[in-house]
Amino acid sequence: MFAIPLLLGITFISFMVIHLAPGDPVEIISGEGIPIDLKPLQDFYKLYGLDQPLHVQYWNWLKRIVRLDFGQSFAPHGRPVIHMIRERLPVTLALNVIEMLIMVALSVPVGVTSATRQYSTFDKSTTVFVFVGFATPDFWLAVMLQILLGVHLGWLPISGLRLPVWEYLPFWQQQWDFLSHLILPITVATFGGLAGYSRYMRQSMLEVIRQDYVQSARAKGLPESVVIGKHALRNAMLPIVTVLGLSVPGLIGGSVIIETIFALPGMGQLMVQAVFERDYPVIMGNLVIVASLTLFANLVADLSYGLIDPRIRVGRRGRA
């Protein structure tokens, strides 16, 4: 139940963001010299009640966003913000879920192998990979891969979610087309994170291996694969679940850059365009939704933590 105060907190911090502006948002926009329509601006004023005392403003705003009413976009189409987000959400969600699955699927075996063969060539090369992976700017990697694999070798599509004439492809080609469009963005998005997780995995595996019950399992003469696979791995998974939960904001944040470079119609791209167009209702809506999503992901992480280790009561993740 700790989610509700946090949700409130999310709305509060988002609300404070509007008031960071030293000037008046309307002033900022109209100062740009771009012809704009004043109606949505007035609605924005009304929605946020910018002329009223702060607590009144906050309360009114809260009452509306509980019903997911984030107002209307400043763009001429003036669509409800929530509709715009709803269109974009599936892409970002799907990308992030796939990224997480891939990270777990790859980092666990890599981490375990590194740990069980500490100081081997494999271990050393993954360590190098970890540091380089951490340090590589993802946008840079993205552009390099687009040029190499997309333009020069022509192996993979450069951008977009699917071919513009996707609807007219046969079924299996449609699936392949989707997949091939996702390879580059997902590779780039997982590259840095993968490095980190395999390292965490290695670390926690090393610690578990040294513990008594693993040693005693070994002493009992159980085959190494059973010792590692059954006893050690399960315990070593605990920290990685936590880390995975904590990494959700990072992943979602990364989609800002990934979606912009690869022209993927997700929330990150929506956010960037909204910032360039100073479409404040969209910015605010995006912020609240994205933070709530992250909160939700953390809850899921907490729950799965409980599943892996029943000794831990749900909702009491080590917040120390």
Binding site: I13, G253, G268, N286, V290, A291, T294
Partner: peptide, 25 residues
Amino acid sequence: VMRLVDLMLVFPRFFLLLAVLAFLT
């Protein structure tokens, strides 16, 4: 303080940065 920390950690940093920058010069 710890609730505030939890709260801030829920915001994907890039989104928060962009949102704040949209309102500032």
